[in-house]
């Protein structure tokens, strides 16, 4: 999906700084006529990815940044959230739905992103999550 032109916003490493970009992205998503369930999915994936970037990637270091890239049209929404941490291996994160992990606070955000988005991958040594949501039903 390299043939799209991304918008890029760089924010400081705190959750509050990501609110304005989130409202901007969701505003574009709603203007493109996506249904409420899809808006729910995109909001959830965005907030989970930002939380992971701020807390786990950048480890709450206020000197670091989070880079948000996004693309919205009537057929798909693409979000790429990059942190400035050391990266991680998604396959090493425990499955939060296993009985022994149900009460552990790890892996739920990653699982929700995978569940709600159409396609997800981790780039740049795990410092960037790239995720895409296709419009449900026939494309316009």
């Amino acid at each position: 999906m390299n043939n799209v032109s991304y918008n890029e916003i760089v924010v400081s490493n705190d959750l509050r700084s990501a609110k304005e970009p989130e409202e901007q992205i969701l505003g574009e998503v709603q203007r493109c006529g996506y249904d409420p369930d899809t808006v729910f999915a995109i909001k959830l994936a965005f907030e989970e990815a930002i939380t992971n970037a701020v807390k786990h990637g950048n480890k709450n270091d206020r000197s670091k940044k989070v880079i948000i890239r996004y693309f919205v049209d009537r057929n798909r929404v693409i979000l790429a959230i990059q942190d400035q941490g050391q990266g991680f291996m998604p396959e090493a994160v425990p499955d939060p739905t296993l009985a022994e992990n149900l009460e552990r606070p790890c892996g739920r955000g990653l699982m929700l992103i995978r569940s709600y988005m159409t396609e997800v991958r981790y780039d740049k040594n795990g410092t960037e999550v790239w995720m895409m949501k296709e419009r449900p039903g026939p494309h316009v």
Binding site: F40, K43, L44, E47, E48, T51, L102, E103, P105, R108, G109, L112
Partner: peptide, 16 residues
């Protein structure tokens, strides 16, 4: 109307 994994974590903490 909406909750994230952080909110779910709050429910699990209350469960504990």
């Amino acid at each position: 109307t909406y909750i994230t994994s952080v909110g779910i974590g709050a429910l699990v903490a209350a469960h504990h």
